[in-house]
Design a protein around this nucleic acid. Structure first.
Length: 277
DNA sequence: CTAGCTTCCTGATAGC
DNA sequence: TGCTATCAGGAAGCTA
């Protein structure tokens, strides 16, 4: 499941391959991946557009065109945005193919079909669900202990759940919430209203450092990404807690535990992240 | 505002 | 071997 660091990696890989390219023809094999407008209108609008660049906001990618129009997409759990040679083998679950002027193709592959595309004309405001209410980027200087405390301090929900709320901080999912909380030494089930000023301070710092670390360690090459390695997490070997239940903590050696918090599997070190209850 | 549940999907895996 | 059940998860939508 791509989270901010993986989405940013994809952006960096894809952007240089798309910039300056014109979309000659679009085929949508599965209309449900198009959230707005209708799939047929989407195909027509996309055809003939020249790519200017790609930006990222939270886990959303936006392809900007010379016309001022833009196409936003969210990969959700299993989406893959690929730029391939036109004769590259077509994977199962390929839902969109766009022919490019340079002879290559953009392909969208998504096993679970949860990913979504939106096409917005230059004159249209952002209507992408959730996008207009996205919270701060993890690397934004405005993401401070005060910001977190004001937005979350009074909440009785577990901090792990609130880190997934895209309207507070954009881009964190199940992997990085576990990693951030481990780095901050906070038990994932801790209720927000039980966190101290020192905890908020620590969280603000760790959110940015862990996300930055995620981007920097995610050194996937375009070749590896195309070969399908983009769906495995290149940085899995360096994760400290996520997916490591039953194995020793890299800091203290205690066994990493697994618990369901807010309906999500959470991994944590019972020694480094004490449950305050 | 809260907790808790369901929906969307397929593939991997566990149990029989 | 082949069947069924369970689980994984981002985000929205629903109920109470």
């Amino acid at each position: 499941m791509p989270e901010l660091p993986e989405v940013e990696t994809i952006r960096r890989i894809i952007e240089p391959q798309l910039a300056g390219q014109t979309i000659l023809h679009v085929t949508i094999n599965n209309p449900q991946i198009v959230a707005y407008p209708e799939a047929e209108a989407f195909e027509k609008l996309l055809t003939g557009q020249m790519v200017k660049g790609i930006s990222r906001r939270g886990k959303f990618l936006t392809v900007h065109f010379e016309s001022g129009d833009r196409m936003t997409l969210h990969l959700r759990m299993t989406g893959q945005l690929l730029v391939t040679p036109s004769d590259y083998p077509v994977e199962k679950h390929t839902h969109l193919v766009a022919e490019l002027s340079g002879g290559r193709q953009i392909r969208y592959v998504d096993v679970r079909r949860f990913g979504r595309f939106w096409y917005l004309k230059a004159c249209e405001p952002d209507i992408v669900t959730g996008r207009e209410q996205l919270g701060l980027e993890p690397l934004d200087d405005a993401l401070t202990a005060d910001y977190l405390k004001i937005r979350l301090g009074g909440r009785r929900k577990a901090i792990k759940e609130m880190l997934h709320d895209q309207s507070i901080v954009a881009g964190i999912g199940n992997i990085y919430s576990d990693e951030v909380l481990f780095a901050a030494g906070i038990y994932p089930g801790t209720k927000c209203d039980a966190l101290s000023d020192a905890d908020w301070q620590c969280l603000a710092i760790k959110i940015s450092t862990i996300i930055l670390w995620g981007i920097e360690t995610n050194q996937t090459t375009p070749e590896e990404y195309l070969a399908g390695k983009g769906k495995e997490y290149r940085n899995t070997p360096v994760l400290r807690v996520y997916g490591r239940a039953g194995r020793p903590c890299t800091t203290c050696g205690q066994t990493i535990e697994k618990a369901t918090i807010g309906g999500r599997t959470s991994c944590y070190c019972p020694n480094c992240q004490r449950n305050p209850l």
